[in-house]
Amino acid sequence: MNIDVGILANARNECRKLLTEQVGVLGVVISSVDGFDVASAVTRDLEPAKIAAMASSIAAIGIVVSQEASLGASKSITVNTEDGFVYITNIELAGQLCALNVIANSSAILAQIIYHSGEIKRRLEVS
Protein backbone atom coordinates (compact mmCIF):
# COMPACT_ATOMS: atom_id res chain seq x y z
CA MET A 1 0.00 0.00 0.00
CA ASN A 2 1.64 3.23 -1.11
CA ILE A 3 0.81 6.07 1.26
CA ASP A 4 2.83 9.22 1.69
CA VAL A 5 5.19 8.99 4.69
CA GLY A 6 3.86 12.27 6.08
CA ILE A 7 0.29 10.96 6.07
CA LEU A 8 1.47 7.73 7.70
CA ALA A 9 3.27 9.71 10.41
CA ASN A 10 0.07 11.69 11.06
CA ALA A 11 -1.89 8.45 11.23
CA ARG A 12 0.54 6.94 13.76
CA ASN A 13 0.39 10.11 15.80
CA GLU A 14 -3.42 10.04 15.85
CA CYS A 15 -3.38 6.39 16.95
CA ARG A 16 -0.92 7.21 19.73
CA LYS A 17 -2.97 10.18 20.92
CA LEU A 18 -6.18 8.17 21.15
CA LEU A 19 -4.35 5.39 23.00
CA THR A 20 -2.79 7.69 25.57
CA GLU A 21 -5.51 10.31 25.99
CA GLN A 22 -8.63 8.15 26.28
CA VAL A 23 -9.25 6.05 29.35
CA GLY A 24 -9.51 2.31 28.71
CA VAL A 25 -8.16 2.26 25.17
CA LEU A 26 -5.87 -0.73 24.70
CA GLY A 27 -5.06 -0.40 21.04
CA VAL A 28 -5.69 1.65 17.94
CA VAL A 29 -4.94 0.16 14.54
CA ILE A 30 -5.51 1.57 11.09
CA SER A 31 -5.63 -1.29 8.61
CA SER A 32 -5.92 -1.67 4.86
CA VAL A 33 -9.10 -3.23 3.48
CA ASP A 34 -7.19 -6.44 2.80
CA GLY A 35 -5.93 -6.77 6.34
CA PHE A 36 -2.52 -5.13 6.62
CA ASP A 37 -1.47 -2.96 9.54
CA VAL A 38 -0.92 0.57 8.17
CA ALA A 39 -0.47 2.56 11.40
CA SER A 40 -0.95 1.58 15.02
CA ALA A 41 -0.40 2.25 18.68
CA VAL A 42 -1.09 -0.61 21.04
CA THR A 43 -0.39 -1.82 24.53
CA ARG A 44 2.12 -4.63 24.53
CA ASP A 45 -0.44 -7.45 24.69
CA LEU A 46 -1.95 -6.70 21.30
CA GLU A 47 -0.57 -7.61 17.89
CA PRO A 48 -1.45 -4.98 15.26
CA ALA A 49 -0.94 -7.42 12.36
CA LYS A 50 -3.47 -9.84 13.81
CA ILE A 51 -5.97 -7.08 14.65
CA ALA A 52 -5.65 -5.70 11.11
CA ALA A 53 -6.44 -9.08 9.53
CA MET A 54 -9.37 -9.75 11.86
CA ALA A 55 -10.79 -6.27 11.36
CA SER A 56 -10.61 -6.73 7.62
CA SER A 57 -12.65 -9.96 7.83
CA ILE A 58 -15.20 -8.44 10.22
CA ALA A 59 -15.58 -5.31 8.08
CA ALA A 60 -15.99 -7.36 4.89
CA ILE A 61 -18.64 -9.53 6.50
CA GLY A 62 -20.36 -6.34 7.73
CA ILE A 63 -20.48 -5.08 4.16
CA VAL A 64 -22.16 -8.23 2.81
CA VAL A 65 -24.62 -8.32 5.72
CA SER A 66 -25.66 -4.71 5.08
CA GLN A 67 -25.96 -5.43 1.35
CA GLU A 68 -28.06 -8.54 2.00
CA ALA A 69 -30.36 -6.54 4.27
CA SER A 70 -30.48 -3.63 1.80
CA LEU A 71 -29.33 -1.23 4.49
CA GLY A 72 -26.89 0.73 2.36
CA ALA A 73 -23.17 1.05 2.88
CA SER A 74 -21.67 -0.32 6.09
CA LYS A 75 -20.17 2.52 8.14
CA SER A 76 -19.02 0.95 11.38
CA ILE A 77 -19.14 -2.22 13.45
CA THR A 78 -19.09 -2.54 17.21
CA VAL A 79 -18.27 -5.78 18.98
CA ASN A 80 -19.50 -5.48 22.55
CA THR A 81 -17.89 -7.89 24.97
CA GLU A 82 -18.10 -8.65 28.69
CA ASP A 83 -14.97 -6.65 29.37
CA GLY A 84 -14.99 -3.95 26.74
CA PHE A 85 -15.57 -3.40 23.06
CA VAL A 86 -14.00 -3.20 19.63
CA TYR A 87 -15.09 -0.35 17.40
CA ILE A 88 -14.31 -0.50 13.67
CA THR A 89 -15.10 2.34 11.30
CA ASN A 90 -14.18 3.22 7.72
CA ILE A 91 -11.51 5.82 7.17
CA GLU A 92 -9.74 7.12 4.09
CA LEU A 93 -6.00 7.63 3.99
CA ALA A 94 -4.76 9.45 0.91
CA GLY A 95 -7.93 8.42 -0.89
CA GLN A 96 -7.50 4.74 0.00
CA LEU A 97 -10.18 3.01 2.02
CA CYS A 98 -8.94 1.69 5.36
CA ALA A 99 -10.43 0.76 8.72
CA LEU A 100 -9.83 2.44 12.06
CA ASN A 101 -9.98 -0.13 14.86
CA VAL A 102 -10.21 0.80 18.51
CA ILE A 103 -9.92 -1.89 21.18
CA ALA A 104 -10.97 -0.77 24.64
CA ASN A 105 -11.76 -2.22 28.04
CA SER A 106 -14.91 -1.52 30.03
CA SER A 107 -13.57 1.70 31.53
CA ALA A 108 -13.77 3.35 28.09
CA ILE A 109 -17.00 5.03 27.00
CA LEU A 110 -18.18 3.90 23.59
CA ALA A 111 -19.85 7.19 22.66
CA GLN A 112 -16.66 9.05 23.46
CA ILE A 113 -14.59 6.67 21.33
CA ILE A 114 -17.05 7.04 18.45
CA TYR A 115 -16.76 10.82 18.74
CA HIS A 116 -12.95 10.80 18.83
CA SER A 117 -12.77 8.27 16.00
CA GLY A 118 -14.89 10.65 13.93
CA GLU A 119 -12.50 13.48 14.75
CA ILE A 120 -9.48 11.38 13.74
CA LYS A 121 -11.23 10.46 10.54
CA ARG A 122 -11.95 14.10 9.77
CA ARG A 123 -8.38 15.20 10.48
CA LEU A 124 -6.72 12.38 8.54
CA GLU A 125 -9.03 12.63 5.58
CA VAL A 126 -8.16 16.28 5.06
CA SER A 127 -4.44 15.83 5.66
Binding site: M1, V33, D34, A53, S57, I63, V64, E68, Q96
Partner: peptide, 22 residues
Amino acid sequence: AVKTDVANTDSTLNKEFTTVGL
Protein backbone atom coordinates in the same frame (compact mmCIF):
# COMPACT_ATOMS: atom_id res chain seq x y z
CA ALA B 1 -22.69 -16.54 -4.00
CA VAL B 2 -21.74 -14.31 -1.10
CA LYS B 3 -18.29 -12.84 -1.57
CA THR B 4 -16.15 -10.71 0.71
CA ASP B 5 -13.61 -9.61 -1.86
CA VAL B 6 -11.79 -6.34 -1.34
CA ALA B 7 -9.12 -4.46 -3.26
CA ASN B 8 -5.75 -6.20 -2.98
CA THR B 9 -2.94 -3.91 -1.78
CA ASP B 10 -0.27 -6.64 -1.63
CA SER B 11 2.08 -5.98 -4.54
CA THR B 12 3.45 -9.54 -4.33
CA LEU B 13 0.11 -10.87 -5.54
CA ASN B 14 -0.93 -10.39 -9.12
CA LYS B 15 -4.64 -9.92 -8.54
CA GLU B 16 -7.03 -7.03 -8.22
CA PHE B 17 -9.28 -8.42 -5.49
CA THR B 18 -8.81 -10.82 -2.63
CA THR B 19 -11.13 -12.61 -0.20
CA VAL B 20 -10.74 -11.45 3.40
CA GLY B 21 -13.79 -12.91 5.11
CA LEU B 22 -15.51 -15.85 3.50
